[in-house]
């Protein structure tokens, strides 16, 4: 039951939000947007293996294909 991943993701997304708003206030929108994209890619890189794992377990439990 690895709930620490959830809290890591929550932490990362809060940090990204803060960075984005700070950079936006500083007037550097393009830089802010690129850090936002980078953050989303990092979060996706953490989430997608989990989803793949879920699909693999469902496949093995229910013998699909």
């Amino acid at each position: 039951m690895d709930t620490d991943l959830i809290f890591q993701l929550a932490g990362i997304s809060i940090v990204i939000t803060v960075i984005y708003t700070v950079l936006k206030q500083a007037g550097r929108d393009e830089f802010a947007f690129s850090t936002l994209l980078l953050g989303i890619v990092v979060v996706l890189a953490m989430v997608i293996p989990k989803i793949a794992g879920l699909f693999e377990t469902v496949r093995s439990v229910f013998q699909i294909y």
Partner: peptide, 26 residues
């Protein structure tokens, strides 16, 4: 947590709910 994040960054909130679903299922 998701409600907090959803105001600013809805795309990150979705991923959080996906991970929660996966963990509860596992």
């Amino acid at each position: 947590l998701i409600v907090i994040i959803k105001q600013q960054r809805p795309e990150l909130a979705i991923q959080l709910s996906v991970v929660t679903g996966v963990i509860i299922f596992s």
